[in-house]
């Protein structure tokens, strides 16, 4: 599993815009375009600097009717991807 501190609260970077286009959802930063799944969109929407990664997993496990372990793994995968592509940063710490 990728290295992500699940106590941190990710926050979207201001230069990234989310757009819906013909039933598909994308994150766009200038010429870089990433298509989102419903789950990855839900993770993105929770990146408001208020909810730690661990909390996201709890919320999304319930919303997507997944077990906690799978939800955590998917959340971490998405956060790792967003961070690696400089779409989010960590602004706040819960601990």
């Amino acid at each position: 599993m990728q290295q992500v501190d699940i106590s941190k609260c990710p926050v979207k970077l201001f230069y990234v815009r989310k757009r819906k286009h013909h039933n598909k959802v994308y994150l766009i930063h200038l010429n870089r375009i990433f298509e989102l799944t419903p789950f990855s969109e839900a993770v993105w929407d929770l990146c408001g600097g208020q909810i730690p990664v661990s909390g996201m997993a709890t919320v999304l496990a319930s919303r997507f009717q997944m077990n906690m372990e799978d939800a955590m793994e998917d959340v971490i995968r998405n956060i790792f991807f967003y961070r690696n592509n400089q779409l989010i940063q960590y602004d706040k710490y819960t601990g």
């Binding site: 979207k12 201001f14 230069y15 990234v16 815009r17 989310k18 757009r19 819906k20």
Partner: peptide, 17 residues
């Protein structure tokens, strides 16, 4: 200001979409 404005724009467009 630039950061606030772009975040604000994103909030508006996402609410519409």
């Amino acid at each position: 200001y630039i950061q606030d404005a772009l975040k604000f724009s994103s909030e508006i467009i996402e609410s519409v979409q």
